[in-house]
Amino acid sequence: MFVLLLLCAIPAYLLASAASLPFAGQSPDWARLGILFGGSLRATLCALVFAVPVGIAAALFAAHFCAPRLRGWLRAALELLEAVPTVVLGLIAFASIAPWLATHVAGVVVACVVAPCALFAWGLATRTPRRRLGWMPLWGVPLVVAALVAGVVLGAGIDGTRFVPASPWNTLLVGLVLGVATLPTVYAMADDALAALPSAQTQAALALGATRWQALVTVALPAAMSGLIAAVCMAAARCFGETMIVLMASGNTPLGGFDWLGGLRSLSAELALELPRSAPSGAAWRELLLVALLLLATTMLLHAVARVMRTRLRARQVA
């Protein structure tokens, strides 16, 4: 019982202490709170832009087209990625990617467009036998890398001033690295959602003459949709609360607006930077508790949505 009390302590503690501190005279700095919230939101959205398409597409591939042995490896590899401490990813972002990205924003943008186009065109041009396609995650790596490099090279030709970031540590950088960090979350949850679907349904679709692709799009995808949405929500919750990467890669400048090349400061970074310096029960302390509460409320909201979605997924599977 003691444990359970302990477990419920976080929200209780935050609420109680925030409520108990008198708002003596001055009201909290809502504008700053808004900017911090906006910073977290921007980082999250930017990360999801990278993580969600890649993670879900990879999970779809793993569930429907992948060689079964490779599927296990793929999962293990991504679990390994999940075990990598985020401070390490933050370091890579801060020290290695940031200086490079400062001059290659256009290249990255072009690469993000060129790579899928190249893959699509390649798929149109060649109809490979299915067995070999099952191993594509392995031999496709050079293909993807080549497409990305080509994109970057093409992008280097563009020298538009629109693509010059205000600071080497900006939202795009945070999004890229945070996206990598949440990739395992998206993948694992999407994979679970797809694996939970009865294989009999896919089999029935195949027996009716559907191709694997049609079975995926017409049967599996609609059935798993709520699970996939849950995956996105969980990933968003994770991004929103992630601290180290944002702390190291964002520049920590409290800027408003939605500039994807500008710096930002997130709720979590504010806590990590300011809390150790502030004395308990001071005005700054109270502000920071509000920040923590906001963070808590948002993550709980996202979790609740994910939970509802997962319940719906389960309800649909009951045959």
């Binding site: 009865p198 009999a200 349904q201 089999q203 029935a204 679709a205 027996a207 009716l208 049967v219 609609p222 059935a223 649909r316 599977q317 045959a319």
Partner: peptide, 12 residues
């Protein structure tokens, strides 16, 4: 056409 051992209607 094929019918399986247990009914497997699609969730639609």
């Amino acid at each position: 056409g094929m019918v399986f051992q247990r009914p497997n209607p699609f969730p639609m």
